[in-house]
Design a binder for these strands. Structure first.
Lengths: 332, 332
DNA sequence: CTGTTAGCGCATTCAA
DNA sequence: TTGAATGCGCTAACAG
């Protein structure tokens, strides 16, 4: 096969159409009127050469790239990728395109990726951060680039955050358990250093504080199946309700509890948090608090778009969660 | 808060350090020797200004960007995102960075994204395509940009593909079922228009063809839980083995079968394909054929890197699958 | 060893 | 309405 020729540029098109490069540029950006026949000639020349404007050159020249950067801790985790997907749904109706990077859970990489993204000329950034928000990371470095942080809430002006109301969701979940007659509770928490971890644990404690006849225990681990499994082995006495930091922990707990011969919810109720796709398929289907990562992404994208339009309001947005009562908790 | 000044450029650094921009460029690319004291001055000036080279300008000038583009049909599907993550693990040790796009299952968008990616100056592309491979899409358009296609096999020179050996995996799965005494089989297939769908169905049929006393039935749907659920309702008579196109279908089938009062694997064995994370947590844990999307990504990345180094071999790579026997199939 | 200069491909002044 | 010229920020000759 013959070596392919180099990509056609604006000068090739101009030459072939017998016009100046300015004219070519004008028809592609329709930035001012161009006579009918010249338009035709340019279009013809361009398509015969397979010409597409070079986005790199455009970015350099214009100072913006029509790209929104995304940085997430783990692209494989559907929670994070759903945020990106939600944003995509909004961006699809615009001429922005998204580029996403994953730090793969590596905090070291996060800073570098942020730099790279920024110096790649992104027009906006939506990110969920691994580490706690570090003002240096985006305030100093991302000069002028609008940023929205997802799944975290930082009180800092000139910054927007969108997150679920983890506190409210967990509180209502525990209150439901209380209303259905549960008296002894164990919290199998995940990652207490994260925003969501903190909020959920605090809500659990607050909901139960001072309730007569209620016994409470807290164990902390990670947001994984394995961690749920292991934490279950740490239980001294099986409580009436095992309240888990998220669905994965709940799956681990359920798995281990069943192995040990307990019936769910006959002997013990188990709850999760998130409502991942699998929660409806588990046995028994999981009672949980649903948060909507797609919506979080949509809201984040809209927020970025507004900021890009100039009329962007900073501040934080808390999204409601929805209680999903399934069969992993007993009714009464 | 005071409006942040514009980003520092190479001239700012040169000015502040009292050197020429060429010298600044040299220390940042260490492309030739620069005297100690000038290096120091440049470093000092650069860091005090927070200077980082503008990747857009670099790309335009050098004609390469040190980025690898990824295009996947659905970023939320862990199978696809794991491919990206696997590739990242390889790329992490290089100075390449990956940018990923998702077509969100929209074939229309796929072509546009490909264009965008290409004109954004990516140095290489790894993609799993929604539609069947269209030679126009990357051969004509991605002139000179190395491409590797994942989860599909196309016989086309100057192209590399990496995929699992779906045929072999499914065949061994069915043979295992045969060896454990199953006689009646139903295949609950997914997306027969995809490469994997075709291979798996063909393997199922081939494995059973001409076996004495074996009865076979094929139903086709999609690679989803809901589809598995619905296809199960289409079963006229419950077979001894329900062989599913992937794990999700199997989960749907198991769910529905249990609802109908069947015991798994007492009354009916069920198998999947993929071994998604959830397969070990399901009840019962799922017998399946494991494919390793991380590995696929690693292999794809290595292949791209080789092509970029000049010594790239084209051709296809088939990865082995591993039978994972769990408790959704009866032993004998 | 260091500085000057010419583009990379394009959008956008400014003239005509 | 169109073209010529300038420069976005940077690297790579080419001189010195």
């Amino acid at each position: 096969m013959i070596e392919l020729s180099r990509r056609a540029g604006i000068v090739d098109v101009a030459k072939k159409a017998g016009v100046s490069i300015a004219t070519v540029s004008r028809v592609f950006n329709n930035t001012s009127y161009v006579s009918e026949d010249l338009v035709e000639k340019v279009i013809a020349a361009a398509s015969s050469l397979g010409y597409k404007p070079n986005r790199v050159a455009q970015s350099l020249r214009k100072g913006r790239s029509r790209t929104i950067g995304f940085l997430v801790p783990d692209i494989v985790n559907p929670f994070f990728s759903s945020i990106v997907e939600g944003a995509n749904r909004i961006l699809y109706d615009t001429d922005y395109v998204s580029v996403v990077c994953s730090s793969s859970g590596d905090a070291e990489r996060e800073g570098g990726l942020l730099e790279t993204l920024y110096s790649s000329g992104i027009d906006g950034l939506v990110t969920v951060l691994l580490k706690e928000y570090d003002r240096h990371i985006d305030y100093v470095r991302l000069r002028g680039v609008p940023v929205v942080i997802v799944d975290d809430v930082v009180e800092e002006k000139k910054l927007s955050c969108v997150a679920s109301d983890n506190y409210d969701g967990m509180k209502r979940l525990v209150e439901f358990l209380l209303n259905t007659g549960h008296k002894t509770f164990t919290f199998l928490g995940g990652s207490p250093e994260t925003y969501s971890g903190k909020q959920r644990m605090r809500a659990f404690l607050d909901a139960l504080k001072g309730k007569p006849g209620v016994r409470t225990e807290v164990i902390s681990g990670e947001y994984t199946f394995e961690s749920g499994f292991r934490m279950t082995d740490l239980l001294r006495k099986i409580p009436q309700a095992v309240v888990c930091g998220n669905d994965l922990i709940a799956f681990g707990a359920i798995y281990r509890l069943k192995e040990k011969g307990f019936d769910i919810p006959g002997d013990v109720s188990v709850t999760g948090f998130d409502d991942v796709v699998f929660s409806k398929m588990s046995d028994p289907p999981l009672t949980t608090a649903r948060q909507d990562p797609y919506l979080m992404g949509e809201v984040a994208a809209k927020s970025i778009l507004e900021k890009l339009d100039g009329n962007g309001s900073d501040g934080n947005i808390l999204l409601h969660t929805e209680l999903v009562i399934r069969r992993s908790t007993r009714g009464r």
